[in-house]
Each structure stands twice: as structure tokens, then as C-alpha cells.
Design a protein around this nucleic acid. Structure first.
Lengths: 173, 173
DNA sequence: ACACTACTATTTGGGGCCAAACGATTCATT
DNA sequence: AATGAATCGTTTGGCCCCAAATAGTAGTGT
């Protein structure tokens, strides 16, 4: 929803004219600005849409669903890997797991061989939730990409993967 | 960073095989799943990169910077529009403005004609920050899109804009 | 055995985020 | 003028988020 960096491809909207004017002295790469901005704008819009229409009815946060999804795919995971897989920090995962465990969608299990580590297992209730939410989720995904052809959708995924790799390889530095 | 929905175009990674297996009964549209997932993954990775390498040195949050940027472009804005432009809720903006005002980067001003409304003006210090951060920000944007040709970058922006429009038009329902 | 180092999940502190409730103000109808 | 609805920014409550500090555990070398 942020209109801040609004920028299409051909159509030059008022916002971008303004940006160009106000930033003229700064010698910016407006093309990459538009692309990256649209990544954020799109992600925000789609995520809001998903949270409101799919997740909220189940009282699930985004991260909670991702964690549940990962567990459903992989069966069980230890905290450490789970956080990496879900793309959140360890400290955040602790809170998310607290919430999920309170709802009995997930269970923490001590690892016998190493008392530092904690295993996480999805419960039957948790599995039910994923299997109920996932199709609805995917239905919305198909909706939001409905304006693209199949080829365009594939292209979009490919181009994004390239950017993703670059960003990850760039690292924190 | 979330590897959860990892999915490229041609290369079938382990994660997607697993997803296909575990979700085979659910009849999912894996193409739109891959595209949408990559939007999130890319947004998260790039945003993390930006926050760590560009924003954090200035002790700025993502939203704080967007708000500052909007104000720099438009000069001054009222709360209501500012929130819409920055893509955050009114309640969130209140907090962000508190933070920005505490740092003297922004000032709240009463609107004479309507005592419900509040105008927000960027200070000289705030302007300096934007003009200092923006080029660095854009440099990183150019970096992360460095793996794409100019045509591909433009295509990416265009495809995303289509998805963005669709998602916004879909609305909350 | 002992210290040292490295790793684990958790806690802490400071924000950010939203929806819903709230109080103040304005507008519309009467 | 007065009442009622609409609109504004803020507050509240609950969750998410991270980085840094912490406590507990395991491994390593001496």
C-alpha cells in the first residue's frame, strides 16, 4: 500500500515526477528504484490481503502460519533450523512457539542427547489447520497473479529469484 | 530469508519436491505459489539488507524512513494522508511520529481550520537525513537488481505493478 | 578434573504493527 | 440551536520483530 515510491514502467505518475524533481540533484537509478519499490509495495499489499482474508479468520499470524507450514512439510524440526526456515530470528521464534503451543497446534520436546536443544512437533490439530488454510491461501495466490499469463508468472518467479539470490549473497557485510 | 516456499522456475529444489508430495492431495497451483512466495522472500531479504546496511547506521526504522521520504517529496502532509502514503495504519503512524519528533526530524503542527487534524512538517535535520540516506539506499537497490538486465528490471517492475493492482483491487472483501 | 570456548534457547528492551475502542471535533439535518 | 452521524488522531492490548545480554549445556584442550 505504500504509494511513496509509486512507479510503473511507462506511465509516469505524479509521484514519480515529484521524486524525479526533488531528487534530481542526487543522480538516482530510477529503474532499480521502481523495481525494488514495487517488490515492497506488492509484498505489503498481498500480505495484508492474505492476513485479512485467510489468516485472521484462523487467528493466525503470518509467521505462525509459516512455522506451522514448515512443520507440516518436514514433520518435525529443531528450533534453530525452524527459525532459519521460517526466516525469523531465534528470539522471535520463542514467542511464536509460545503462542502456537498455547493453542495446542505445536509441542516442544526436549532433545535427549543434548539438553540445550529443543525439538518442535506439529500436533494433529496443527496439521488440520494447515490443511484447511493452505488451499485457501493458494486460492488467493492464484487470484492475485490472475492478471498475469502463465509465462509472465513464471518470468516473475524467475526474476525475483535472481534478485533474491543477489540480496542474500550480498549479505550483511 | 524464509526458505519455506523455496521455488524457482526450472530447478526443482528439495523443498518444492517435499511440498508437492505433502500437498499432493490439495491440488495447489504451484506456479502462483512460487511467484507469490518469491515476492515475500525477496522483499524480506532486501528489506533486511537495507535495514542492516543503510537504515540502522542512522537509527532509522523502515517506516520512519518512508515517512521521512514522503515528507521530503511532498513538503508537508497531514497525518491521514501520510499514513496512507506510507502504507501504515493511523495508530502505527502516531508511534512513528512520536519517535521522529523526539529526534527532531519532524514537527507536528495543528491545523487552524480543523482542530481534529494534525499537519506534519519535516525539519531541516530531517531533510539532511533523507538526502544523506537516499543515495545510499538507491545504491543498494541498484546492487540487488544488478543480476538483471535493464529490460528484465523494467519487466519485473511492470509485472509487479500488475500483481499490486490486482491485490489492491481485490480489497479486504 | 579444570578452564576455556562455542553453542543452545530464552529473556530483555525498544520499536513496529494492527484492530478496536475512545474522546474531541466537525458536519448534516432538523 | 440541537441532536446525531461521521471523521480525525490517539490510546490500548496483543502480537511480532530484532539485537544484545543471559543462563545453561556441550565440547576441547590441558
Amino acid at each position: 500500500m505504500p504509494r511513496a515510491f509509486a512507479a510503473g514502467d511507462d506511465e509516469l505518475v505524479e509521484a514519480e515526477r515529484l521524486i524525479r524533481d526533488r531528487m534530481s540533484g542526487l543522480d538516482l537509478d530510477l529503474l532499480s528504484l521502481a523495481a525494488v519499490s514495487n517488490v515492497f509495495r506488492t509484498a505489503t499489499a498481498v500480505r495484508n490481503h492474505m492476513e485479512r482474508n485467510v489468516l485472521k479468520p484462523h487467528s493466525l499470524s503470518w509467521s505462525a502460519f509459516v512455522v506451522l507450514f514448515v512443520l507440516h512439510i518436514w514433520g518435525a524440526k529443531e528450533s534453530r533450523e525452524l527459525a532459519a526456515e521460517a526466516g525469523i530470528s531465534g528470539g522471535t521464534l520463542t514467542g511464536v512457539l509460545d503462542t502456537l503451543e498455547r493453542k495446542a497446534l505445536v509441542v516442544r520436546q526436549p532433545v535427549p542427547t543434548d539438553r540445550r536443544r529443543v525439538g518442535v512437533v506439529i500436533t494433529d490439530a496443527g496439521t488440520s489447520v494447515v490443511e484447511e488454510v493452505m488451499p485457501a491461501f493458494n486460492r488467493e495466490e492464484a487470484q492475485v497473479t490472475g492478471g498475469l499469463t502463465v509465462e509472465e508468472t513464471a518470468t516473475l518467479a524467475r526474476l525475483l529469484r535472481t534478485v533474491l539470490r543477489t540480496a542474500e549473497d550480498l549479505g550483511p557485510r
